[in-house]
Amino acid sequence: MAIDSDPNSPGAWSRVFGGMRKFFAEAGDISAFAIRFFREILFPPYEFREVIRQSYEIGYKSFSLVGITAFIIGLVLTLQSRPTLVEFGAEAWLPAMVGISIIREIGPVITALICAGKIGSGIGAELGSMRVTEQIDAMEVSGTNPFKYIVVSRMVATTVMVPVLVILGDTIALYGSFIAVKLKGAVSLKLFLSQVFESIDYGDVIPSIVKSVFFGFAIGLTGCFKGYYTKKGTAGVGRSANSAVVIGSLLIFIIDLIAVQITQFFGIF
């Protein structure tokens, strides 16, 4: 007991080093998985039909959840920001402030986190279950490259569909914001939108979409990686789904942090 609680004991250090080694080994494996994705995507056969099917499954079936969340976020953000702006006599800035917040940051990050929860865990569990029930092996034995058929198609679908969901989510969040503004005073949608679009430019929209592409890639990567290498039966399927969400969400924040640094470095904001 005393040895375990002493940070200078060899046991504690070996646990720290063991944990670090495991972290770097996992990071290396995920990087190798991503490299394999780029290698496989370049060469035929191309799984267009499966990519379209997965895009439908991932994009269309997540739209309602993203839409409802975005509407509420836009509405609540506006209602919460309004009193402070009123206090400073800057109520007229409300559409511009909320618009910038949604498009630059809240829209992409919230949508990506929802997708990491819904899509990432779904992919992790589905592929994990395919692994433990030998469906991936069966595919390989039948002469089909399971990496290309299962992994590449899903990663392409998430990379394409998450930015689409972000754009739709941003639009709905802005509409939610308009409803909140309208609740407190008479303003037309046209006036609201003109105030929003006066304050944003391509420097806000393009980096937001570009980082959404990376968010989508990260969600697909973690979901597929964790699912594809699931071990230890059905308990492993649950662990894969769970760690796909945890690692995916963490990667979203890391990518967001890097994206902010890059855009500030180039003076885009």
Binding site: Q135, S142, G143
Partner: peptide, 25 residues
């Protein structure tokens, strides 16, 4: 190869399971 768990693709119907190797090749 007949797997112990049969390894049927559970997102596909029986017909699609059988068509899969034919279409792939």
């Amino acid at each position: 190869f007949l797997f112990q768990s049969s390894a049927l693709y559970d997102s596909m119907t029986v017909r699609e399971n059988l068509e899969f190797p034919l279409r792939r090749h």
